[in-house]
Design a protein around this nucleic acid. Structure first.
Length: 467
RNA sequence: GCUCCCUUCGUAUAGUGGCCCUGGACACCGCCCUCUCAUGGCGGUAACACGAGUUCGAACCUCGUAGGGAGCGCCA
């Protein structure tokens, strides 16, 4: 039997980190085992579901490259099917109508709590068999087995057993005529031939009741794998407060999709000591059975490190479109300066994110207006600054070519001419070009500025140095 | 309250009874390299929640305790 997994988000917001990790694991399991990955939108909650959220989820999946083989399927388009299935259950005596109001149910729960029991429905209409009646409180409930227990072998958590007397008769159809989540998922997973249900472990407690529904429907029960939650850095539930919003925010913040994927795959899963996984390696090595049981915390530091690993090792040409996107987002015109690929080469070891890289690149795309005061004092007012700048200006101006190498030679020659070390020339020059004491290696820094602009900036610095 | 789940350095993890007075990684600290900043290299600080038991031997098995989490909806 072919492996079929699904990712089934409800469209009530963007695709967040936890959802993305679940989607990744589902996708990986399908790809690893040569199966299919299905996308389903669980939109039975008409109040909270929105088309924008559907699009946000699709965008997020697309950005991460988690392609699905079937879908997206929408539950709201399958209403007739749910009705048909529940009718069959009713006819078979495996479900029944119940007429308590929500208030009555609340009282029931409160009473059970008081007795130290689990709050649950007491099964008043279960064997009364009053049949259909036109009543605004009418719901359809499932006749859960009264005795015995449900056992399943969770691929992540191991064997889990629930006693049936812990479970009450869950509502299959609400009084508004819509199916409940617990019913719709089961019908969908059966109809879509899902063989492995991989989802967050907040669903562990729903699993036994769902298994009972599978059995009542005479369907094969799929295997389950419940993934632990991803928490914020403080160990609390991940929230907007942590800045961890939709995955698209990570693009905006300058992260590469494969870096995010790599980070996510290592959250709760590992393969020995390996940290870097290409997409192909993930697919080859992934095994849901190795997933961890304990919840994990989201750590931006590690993500940043991974991101830089990829910035460093990726072909700079492939980073160009991403980088240009970031330049524009930072209000920088990529046309007004050096070739982006040259900038990437100069900055790839100095930026953890592309956003940071764009910020650092600003100096080559806009006129130099501000000088750092401390930098000027330290490197332009020093005794050797003036002769150093003059020598560099001369050698740079005389240089025939304009390449990183020729610039490097010119600077070396200037240093030799005034009998000073590299540092005595590079630092004043760096301040002259960038207005600061920090930049990539001086030859790249000067090269990227362009000959004319570089000479202009050096002239300005010579004036500042008192020349 | 009840049910279920979880617990190795700050973080993510390796470890499946002897190879572990726990290994590599991120972060942190120090040194080296060096035109600054980075990158890179080298080194360092730092953990088996606690208590019993099983065993010749336990991070690994069992039980208990503590702490944390989830669920208990006509939400998904």
């Amino acid at each position: 039997m072919t492996v079929r997994t699904r990712f089934a988000p409800s469209p009530t917001g963007f695709l967040h980190i936890g959802g993305a990790r679940t989607a990744l694991f589902c996708w990986l399991e399908a790809r690893h085992r040569g199966g299919e990955f299905i996308l389903r939108i669980e939109d039975t909650d008409r109040e909270r579901s929105t088309q924008d959220a559907v699009q946000a989820i699709l965008d997020g999946m697309n950005w991460l490259g988690l392609d699905h083989d079937e879908g997206p399927f929408y539950q709201t388009l399958r209403m007739d099917r749910y009705k048909q299935v529940v009718e069959n259950l009713l006819k078979a005596g495996k479900a029944y109508y119940a007429y308590e109001s929500k208030e009555e149910i609340d009282v029931m729960r409160a009473e059970a709590m008081e007795k130290g029991l689990k709050p649950r429905y007491n099964g008043y209409y279960r064997d009364r068999d009053e049949g259909f009646r036109d009543d605004p409180n009418r719901v359809i409930r499932f006749k859960n087995p009264a005795s015995g227990s449900v056992v399943f072998d969770d691929k992540v958590k191991g064997r889990i057993e629930f006693s049936n007397d812990e479970l009450d008769d869950l509502v299959l159809f609400r009084s508004d005529g819509f199916p409940t989540y617990n019913f719709a998922v089961v019908v969908d997973d059966i109809d879509m031939n899902i063989s492995e249900v991989i989802r967050g472990d907040d669903h562990v407690n729903n699993t036994p009741r769902q298994i009972n529904v599978y059995n009542a429907l005479g369907a094969t029960v799929p295997t389950f794998a419940h993934l632990p939650m991803i928490l914020g850095p403080d160990g609390q539930k991940l929230s907007k407060r942590h800045g961890a919003v939709g995955v698209m925010q990570y693009r905006d913040d300058g992260f590469l999709p494969h870096a995010v994927l790599n980070y996510l795959v290592r959250l709760g899963w590992s393969h020995g000591d390996q940290e870097i996984f290409s997409r192909e390696q993930m697919i080859e090595l992934f095994d849901i059975g190795n997933a961890n049981r304990a919840p994990s915390r989201f750590d931006v530091e590690k993500l940043s490190w991974l991101n830089q690993q990829y910035i460093k090792s990726d072909d700079p040409l492939e980073l160009v479109p991403h980088f240009i996107w970031q330049l524009r987002a930072a209000g920088i015109d990529p046309e007004q300066g050096p070739e982006p690929v040259d900038v990437i080469v100069a900055l790839r070891e100095r930026a953890q994110t592309l956003k940071e890289m764009a910020e650092k690149a600003r100096v080559w795309y806009a006129p130099l207006e501000n000088y750092d005061e401390a930098a000027v004092t330290k490197h332009l007012k020093s005794a050797t600054a003036l002769p150093a700048l003059q020598a560099v200006h001369e050698h740079l101006g005389a240089s025939l070519e304009w390449t990183v190498e020729s610039v490097h030679e010119a600077i070396t020659a200037a240093a030799a001419a005034i009998e000073q070390g590299m540092g005595k020339v590079a630092q004043p020059l760096r301040v002259a070009i960038t207005g600061t004491q920090v930049s990539p290696s001086i030859d790249h820094t000067v090269f990227l500025t362009g000959r004319d602009e570089a000479l202009r900036r050096i002239e300005a610095a010579i004036k500042l140095a008192g020349g």
